[in-house]
Amino acid sequence: MPVAFELAVQDTHGLEVAARLRVDRIELCSALALGGLTPSLAFIEAAVATPGIPPIHVLIRPRPGGFDYTPAEADLIIRDVRHALAAGAHGVVVGGVRDGHVDEGLLDRIAAAADGADVTFHRAFDTLGDPAAALDILSKSGVRRLLSSAGADSVSDALPALTALVDAAAGRIEIMAGGGVSPESIPGILRTGVAAVHASAKHGIPDTVTVGLGTAAPAGATTRETTDEQQVRRILTALRDHERH
């Protein structure tokens, strides 16, 4: 069975690359350097309107940091889920924890707001202490897909654990590998039996800002990240080579 490739996209250049190279799915987001945040409504609309664009799944994450959300933040997540789907997104990418466990109350609210659209649970999963229990909760909650590095910063450092996760899922929920994915890591990742691979495939572009914009954005030479088209091509080639063999 073909392994799907989901590309994380944070700007219009990434949209163009995704459409041109015909990736299988997009995770639309902003601020990948912070782990990804909810994109603007205008960006969602632009993605939906891009000719040849694959299915769009919007990351809903209202702030950087951890995933234990206040009631006000949870309300914002639900509003963003509704707005993203109303704008034409095919699904949403979400996550929430409560006292070290899956936030089942938030997940129930998300499932209701998604109203049958695809829901992916993101790498908040990798912060949990009992992956097996979390997997059971997710598989019963209407979540279609789990994005995971099997608890490591880079998925390539946790391939045995990823294989165990695929086995534990037993087809109840799709497992998608993510976290530090590169063209070179694809063969090892695919041997775990995952159904999909997620990557940002980005590189840095030198830039200069003449005035300080914040504590994490001082004045001077800097680098901004965008999609690396050649790296996307190499990942796609590695995936298709696997299919042929």
Rank of each mutant, 00 (worst) to 15 (best):
189 I>P: 04
159 L>Q: 08
177 A>H: 01
190 L>Y: 10
177 A>V: 04
191 R>D: 15
154 S>W: 15
170 A>P: 03
164 A>C: 01
174 E>N: 10
194 V>G: 03
164 A>Y: 02
171 G>S: 09
164 A>W: 11
171 G>C: 00
181 V>R: 08
178 G>D: 07
189 I>Q: 07
183 P>C: 05
158 A>L: 00
183 P>E: 06
185 S>V: 07
171 G>K: 06
154 S>Q: 15
188 G>E: 07
169 A>W: 01
172 R>V: 00
165 L>H: 01
191 R>Y: 01
161 A>M: 09
163 T>W: 08
194 V>R: 00
170 A>G: 04
179 G>F: 08
194 V>S: 00
167 D>M: 07
191 R>K: 14
186 I>T: 12
178 G>Y: 06
157 D>Y: 06
184 E>G: 13
194 V>N: 03
161 A>H: 12
176 M>V: 06
184 E>W: 07
159 L>R: 08
161 A>K: 14
189 I>N: 02
174 E>K: 12
160 P>L: 02
179 G>P: 13
162 L>K: 04
165 L>A: 10
179 G>R: 09
156 S>K: 14
158 A>F: 01
190 L>N: 06
166 V>R: 11
168 A>P: 03
185 S>A: 15
174 E>G: 03
180 G>Q: 04
181 V>I: 14
186 I>P: 10
161 A>S: 14
171 G>Q: 09
190 L>S: 09
175 I>S: 01
181 V>N: 00
157 D>G: 02
163 T>C: 12
177 A>T: 05
165 L>C: 13
165 L>I: 00
179 G>A: 10
169 A>S: 10
156 S>Q: 15
183 P>Q: 08
188 G>C: 06
182 S>F: 12
191 R>M: 12
190 L>W: 10
154 S>H: 15
185 S>I: 03
159 L>W: 05
157 D>F: 11
186 I>F: 02
164 A>I: 00
178 G>I: 02
194 V>Y: 06
175 I>W: 02
186 I>L: 11
184 E>C: 04
184 E>Q: 15
157 D>P: 06
180 G>I: 06
167 D>L: 13
173 I>C: 03
182 S>Y: 07
186 I>D: 07
180 G>T: 05
154 S>A: 15
182 S>V: 03
192 T>E: 09
160 P>R: 09
188 G>P: 07
187 P>R: 05
190 L>H: 06
169 A>K: 02
166 V>Y: 13
169 A>Y: 02
192 T>V: 09
163 T>Q: 15
181 V>Q: 03
190 L>G: 10
180 G>P: 12
165 L>W: 00
184 E>K: 14
175 I>D: 03
178 G>L: 09
163 T>A: 14
193 G>R: 08
179 G>S: 05
165 L>T: 13
178 G>A: 00
191 R>E: 15
166 V>K: 07
159 L>H: 02
179 G>C: 05
185 S>Q: 10
194 V>Q: 08
180 G>M: 03
160 P>N: 12
175 I>E: 02
185 S>Y: 13
156 S>D: 13
181 V>F: 11
